[in-house]
């Protein structure tokens, strides 16, 4: 990609499942779990993991089993709020 003049040239990666962790150690913890690691494609940075397409619900379920409480940020329709 070349440096543009004016607007910034970008490439958009749509519908990517991203798992962000607070620290690199937490990311290591996640990757150390074989059932989670199988659904992680790789690390975009020390604290950002890419999840296989279509596997985010399984990853969240597994994280909850391990006692985590992942925050889910979706730009889709709202969830029941009460």
């Amino acid at each position: 990609m070349t440096r543009p003049t004016g607007r910034l040239a970008v490439k958009l990666h749509r519908r990517v499942c991203v798992l962000m962790t607070d620290t690199a150690v937490t990311a290591e913890e996640v990757l150390a779990r074989p059932r989670l690691a199988a659904d992680i494609v790789g690390r975009l940075s020390p604290t950002v993991l890419l999840v296989r397409p279509g596997r985010w619900e399984a990853v969240v379920a597994e994280l909850r089993k391990l006692g985590h409480a992942p925050r889910i940020i979706s730009s889709g329709p709202p969830r029941p709020q009460g």
């Binding site: 958009l12 990517v16 925050r71």
Partner: peptide
């Protein structure tokens, strides 16, 4: 500690 974006635009 953990944040999941199920369908983000990177």
């Amino acid at each position: 500690r953990l944040t999941v974006f199920p369908a983000a635009v990177v």
